[in-house]
Simulated assay, not measured.
Amino acid sequence: MSYIENRRSEPRTRVNEGGLITLDEHTSIGCFVHDISAGGIKITLLDAVSVPNTFVLIAPCVGDKVCQVVWRTDEMIGAKFE
């Protein structure tokens, strides 16, 4: 288990489905939702560095949610729901 997993305050459910991150009214990028909890989500995408700290995620598992980045790597983001 990694350090990040040990800090989770809520259980996560694996969903493994596609989604979209909207960057502005005209730009969105595809992502893959790995898991979700009541307060947050873990996603992967090709260039996580290009995603702003606050973004809108659109995915069947959550609908439209405003998210705040908690941690990121080059290809993964852990975010909490606003």
Rank of each mutant, 00 (worst) to 15 (best):
residue 2 S to K: 13
residue 2 S to Y: 12
residue 3 Y to G: 13
residue 4 I to E: 15
residue 5 E to Y: 11
residue 5 E to P: 06
residue 5 E to A: 13
residue 6 N to V: 06
residue 7 R to T: 15
residue 9 S to P: 02
residue 12 R to V: 15
residue 12 R to G: 14
residue 12 R to I: 14
residue 13 T to A: 13
residue 15 V to T: 08
residue 16 N to L: 11
residue 16 N to H: 12
residue 18 G to P: 01
residue 20 L to P: 00
residue 20 L to F: 12
residue 21 I to Q: 10
residue 22 T to R: 12
residue 22 T to W: 10
residue 23 L to N: 00
residue 23 L to R: 00
residue 23 L to W: 00
residue 23 L to V: 00
residue 23 L to G: 00
residue 23 L to P: 00
residue 24 D to S: 12
residue 24 D to V: 07
residue 24 D to I: 07
residue 26 H to E: 04
residue 27 T to E: 03
residue 28 S to Y: 02
residue 28 S to R: 05
residue 28 S to M: 04
residue 29 I to N: 02
residue 29 I to H: 01
residue 29 I to V: 15
residue 30 G to N: 06
residue 30 G to Q: 05
residue 30 G to R: 04
residue 31 C to A: 02
residue 32 F to I: 03
residue 33 V to M: 02
residue 35 D to K: 02
residue 35 D to R: 02
residue 35 D to C: 03
residue 36 I to Q: 01
residue 36 I to V: 12
residue 39 G to K: 09
residue 40 G to S: 08
residue 40 G to N: 06
residue 42 K to P: 00
residue 43 I to A: 07
residue 44 T to I: 08
residue 44 T to P: 01
residue 45 L to F: 10
residue 46 L to D: 15
residue 47 D to S: 09
residue 48 A to P: 13
residue 48 A to L: 15
residue 49 V to P: 00
residue 49 V to E: 14
residue 49 V to H: 10
residue 49 V to N: 12
residue 52 P to L: 13
residue 53 N to Y: 12
residue 53 N to T: 07
residue 55 F to Q: 03
residue 55 F to S: 03
residue 57 L to V: 12
residue 58 I to N: 09
residue 59 A to F: 09
residue 59 A to E: 06
residue 60 P to Q: 11
residue 62 V to M: 04
residue 62 V to N: 03
residue 63 G to P: 10
residue 63 G to E: 11
residue 63 G to M: 08
residue 63 G to H: 08
residue 65 K to P: 09
residue 66 V to W: 14
residue 67 C to M: 12
residue 67 C to L: 07
residue 67 C to F: 10
residue 68 Q to C: 10
residue 69 V to M: 09
residue 69 V to Q: 10
residue 70 V to K: 14
residue 70 V to T: 11
residue 73 T to H: 02
residue 77 I to K: 05
residue 77 I to R: 05
residue 77 I to C: 05
residue 78 G to K: 06
residue 80 K to P: 00
residue 80 K to D: 06
residue 81 F to V: 04
residue 81 F to I: 04
residue 81 F to A: 01
